Simulated assay, not measured.
Amino acid sequence: MTAKAQTLRFETEPKEGETIGEVAHRRIRLHIVNGRLKPGEKLKLDRMRDTYQASVTAMREILNRLAVEELVTAEGQRGFRVAEASASELRDLAELRILLETDALRQSIAQGDLDWEASVVAAHYKLSAIETLLINKAEDAVEQWVAADWGFHYATIAACRRPVFARTHASVFDRFARYHMLALNFRGKPAAQEHADLRDLVVGRQADAAVDLLTRHIRSGVEHILSSGDFQ
C-alpha cells in the first residue's frame, strides 16, 4: 500500500481513476470501523449491492478481502458477517499495535526530515480541530475523527519506510479503532492532550519519551473502552 493510499484510507468520496469496487471497499471498511455495521451483523450481498452501488461479484470480492483483514467473518456457503468483538481481542490488538507502532515511531524519528515534521504538525492540527468539536458534543464529527486520528498516528510513523510494517499496522489500527467507536467513541480531553504532547515529542525527536507516551496512550484507550462494560 502506497503512502497516498494510506492517507486516503478513510476517504469515502471517489477519486480520479478509482473503480467502484475500490470506493465500496473503503466505505464498507469505514462503516465496520465506526460501528455503523455492527459486530455479528449479517452482510447480505443483495442489500450490500444496493447500499454500496457495486455488483454482487464485486461485493463478494470486497468481503473476502475484509475477511483477510479480520473485519469480516466468512461463513462458507452461508455468506459473511461483521467480525465479533471481545475484550480479549481488544487487549491483543492493543499490544500488537504498540509493538508495531513504537518500532515504526523510533525509526521515523531517526529518519524523518523537515517535510515529515511538517506533516506531523499539519495532521495534528486537523485532529485537534475535530477533537475540539467532539469535546463540545458535536457527535456528527465522529467519522471525521476516525480519519483524523488515523491521519495523525500514520503521519508520526510515515518516515519509517517499511511498507510491510505499514500495511500490517494499518490493519491492526482499523480493528483497534473499531472498539472506540463501538464503546464510547472518543476519550475526550485526556486523549486530545496526549496527542498534543506526542506531537511535541515527535517533532522534538525525543524517541524514548514519545514511545512511552504512545504506549500509555494506547493502553489508556483500552481501559476507557472496557470501562463501558460492552465487551466480555
Rank of each mutant, 00 (worst) to 15 (best):
S55W: 03
D230Y: 14
L105Q: 08
G151Q: 14
R161A: 14
A192H: 14
L63T: 13
E101A: 08
F152A: 04
I130Y: 08
E61L: 09
T156D: 02
T19F: 01
T51Y: 01
D140T: 07
D50P: 03
A210P: 04
R175N: 06
F186H: 15
S88P: 00
V120G: 09
H224N: 02
K42S: 12
T7I: 12
M59W: 04
V172Q: 04
P14K: 02
G76D: 10
A148K: 12
K38G: 01
A83Y: 12
A183K: 02
G221C: 04
R199E: 13
Y179H: 14
F173P: 01
H25N: 11
S108G: 08
R162G: 04
R27T: 06
R162T: 12
D46F: 05
R199S: 09
A87M: 09
P163S: 15
T19R: 07
M59T: 02
E101Y: 01
A158D: 10
R161M: 10
A155K: 14
I32R: 06
A209E: 13
M181L: 03
A74E: 13
C160F: 08
T2W: 00
Q144F: 08
G204E: 04
M181W: 05
R36Y: 11
A170H: 03
N34P: 00
E194A: 14
S220F: 10
S220Y: 13
E139K: 08
A147S: 15
T51H: 03
H124S: 05
A138Y: 11
R97L: 12
D208N: 10
L198A: 03
R216E: 06
R167M: 02
R175S: 10
A123Q: 03
G112S: 01
L134C: 03
V202A: 08
E194C: 00
Y154T: 03
V23I: 13
I98P: 13
N136Q: 14
L184A: 08
V202M: 00
H217P: 05
L63R: 06
L214G: 02
L198R: 01
D92H: 12
E131Y: 04
A110G: 12
Y179F: 13
R187G: 07
F152G: 09
L45K: 05
R162Q: 13
Y125E: 14
R205N: 07
V211N: 10
D50V: 05
G204A: 05
A87V: 06
L37R: 10
D208Y: 00
S88M: 07
